[in-house]
């Protein structure tokens, strides 16, 4: 399951999340969304590298990003 969930329909393609991610994992898609913006995307390999710091979600002006963190359960 992904740690970074980007709501593609909510994203306006401002790109602020790409500068906020300390590992540079988020990039802009080359496919337009339904609103006509190029939304932010993260690949499956980069999902694995994500540390769930939520920097991208904090800076997102459209609250389009939800973050999950892997926790150990007994």
């Amino acid at each position: 399951m992904p740690k970074v969930v980007i709501d593609e329909l909510r994203c306006k393609g401002c790109g602020l999340c790409t500068t906020a991610c300390p590992h540079g994992l988020i990039r802009m898609s080359d496919k337009l969304n339904r609103q006509g913006f190029l939304p932010a995307v993260i690949s499956d390999e980069d999902q694995e590298k994500c540390v769930s710091c939520a920097m991208c979600a904090r800076i997102c002006p459209d609250v389009a990003i939800t973050i999950f963190k892997k926790v150990n359960i007994a």
């Binding site: 306006k12 393609g13 002006p61 609250v63 999950f68 359960i73």
Partner: peptide, 29 residues
């Protein structure tokens, strides 16, 4: 031991889950 995903960042309850009219990059949101 296994692992699960816990939500650590979510949309606030007091903010409606709707698209805003703000321009891309506007920090009102």
């Amino acid at each position: 031991m296994s692992s699960a995903l816990q939500q650590v960042f979510a949309h606030p309850v007091s903010l409606k889950d709707v698209q805003t009219h703000f321009c891309p990059g506007c920090q009102h949101g």
